[in-house]
């Protein structure tokens, strides 16, 4: 049986990759993809703890996380499309229109 710490290690490495991607990439579409990586890292952790503790509730939480991810993608892509119409670019450093 795989020890639980391996799953926690995998999930934290995955979260770190996603976090670095969010902070480093310039393309807003890739930034949204990296947010999905981070959500998946959390889900892996939830499911691993659910198996090792024999609690089903964690899997329900994963279900809700997937729901929120779907909503976030719809809203995020809507924002990206309207920003692209406004500025003609998807680079994140062109989006400073809230700045005074």
């Amino acid at each position: 049986m795989v020890p639980l710490s391996w799953y926690v290690g995998l999930s934290s490495a995955l979260f770190l990759v996603g976090l670095v991607g969010v902070l480093v990439r310039r393309n807003t579409l890739v930034v949204l993809l990296c947010i999905e990586i981070m959500l998946n890292a959390v889900n892996v952790n939830f499911v691993a703890f659910s198996k090792y503790q024999h609690v089903i509730d964690a899997q329900i939480l994963v279900f809700f996380v997937i729901t929120v991810a779907a909503a976030e993608v719809a809203i995020g892509l809507g924002i990206i499309i309207s920003l692209f119409r406004l500025k003609g670019s998807v680079n994140i450093d062109d989006f400073n229109i809230l700045k005074l």
């Binding site: 779907a70 909503a71 976030e72 719809a74 809203i75 892509l77 809507g78 924002i79 499309i81 309207s82």
Partner: peptide, 10 residues
């Protein structure tokens, strides 16, 4: 809400 918001924004 996400559905309505995405349509309104896009």
């Amino acid at each position: 809400i996400a559905l309505v918001g995405a349509i309104v924004m896009a």
